[in-house]
């Protein structure tokens, strides 16, 4: 059987205006216990890549520019 992709709503949003990943910051990527965030090099901003969020908040609280916001995942909101 071939594999297909399905979408899900990402609980973590990064404000690309505020994000300073283009200056080398990787704080949110470093602190995520589940390793869900990556740096999008083309756009110079962090993004959520995998929907496996524990909504534990280090990414949001440790971000030096308040660029990260975490929502409660839709399934349990």
């Amino acid at each position: 059987m071939p594999l297909i992709q399905s979408s899900s709503r990402a609980p973590v949003t990064i404000n690309s205006e505020a994000c300073i990943a283009d200056k080398g910051c990787t704080v949110c990527v470093d602190v995520c216990p589940l390793d869900l965030l990556v740096i999008d090099m083309a756009n110079g901003t962090a993004v959520m890549k995998y929907d496996e969020c524990w909504y534990c908040l280090p990414c949001e609280l440790d971000c030096p520019t308040d660029a990260v916001s975490v929502e409660i995942p839709y399934l349990l909101k």
Partner: peptide, 15 residues
């Protein structure tokens, strides 16, 4: 599995 069905909505850190 949590009753929400969200695999990572566990009591323990899912790591």
């Amino acid at each position: 599995m949590p009753t929400s069905g969200y695999l990572f909505g566990t009591y323990e850190n899912p790591t």
